[in-house]
Design a binder for these strands. Structure first.
Lengths: 126, 126
DNA sequence: TTTTATGTATTATATATACTAATACAAATA
DNA sequence: TATTTGTATTAGTATATATAATACATAAAA
């Protein structure tokens, strides 16, 4: 899996890394139960500090996206059951995005189409 | 317009304030051309510093959500033309949210329904 | 003209966060 | 035993956040 970090971005490195791994899981680039690189390996590959990667892994673990076994390292968590209700946090994030879209002049049908296109790229549920 | 800030949140105050104003504009709580409170007034009402509010206004101005006239203060910007294409930034934000939703087990139809419900609350385009 | 209110700029301070660095530890495998 | 795993600790530096106290230019209102 290819990861590219922007060192001059306002988004913290550990958060950029977290986001790209989440998208990787959803798109199937990282398969279920697949093992992630070790914190040392990934830190070396990306040219960043070990503790920054560790912070990302701790965050992903706390959010339930990965599972950490001291024996085998970090793995992608088993799939959740389908048909779940959206989290309140997710609903709030979506509300903010839709508010911005509406103000910027993106109408609902265009927005829904975009959602469909993005969902089509997510191999997680198929 | 009612604004509530969480002082113990991880989200900076100026960003919380910015988000609530954006949602207020989209939902029609803040009408087009409507004048926002002065930075001093809003800072006093919320019990925060003047410069924090000023930072929010500067951000909203830079993003095009409000217009600032030195004579009359800050106003909600005129409406954008409808039928605009989604920004690349907006697309990326949406991609991340959909990735999280997919992993959490929210299927596409449920997600689309939620989008529709949120859009229905946005009085901006109607 | 004077007063008032607007956003904005400046300077300073305190606190929290982000990132790096160098070690070290417990656990488990080869 | 040696190696690899995530994790903890301690330290240092840089940046971001928020507050505080003033001050300024602009323009409306008295």
């Amino acid at each position: 899996m290819i990861i590219s970090l922007e060192l001059d971005s306002e988004t913290p490195l550990y958060e950029q890394l977290r986001n790209q791994i989440v998208i990787g899981i959803a798109m199937g680039t990282l398969a279920e139960q697949e093992r992630l690189p070790s914190v040392r390996q990934l830190a070396e590959d990306l040219g960043i500090n070990t503790m920054t990667v560790n912070k990302t892994y701790a965050l992903l673990k706390q959010e339930g996206y990965i599972v950490i076994d001291r024996r085998h390292g970090a793995k992608v968590a088993p799939r959740a059951a389908v048909g779940q209700e959206p989290t309140e946090q997710l609903t709030h994030q979506l509300q903010l995005i839709i508010a911005q879209a509406a103000i910027q002049g993106v109408d609902q049908s265009r927005f829904q189409t975009l959602c469909g296109q993005i969902f089509a790229k997510m191999a997680y549920q198929t």
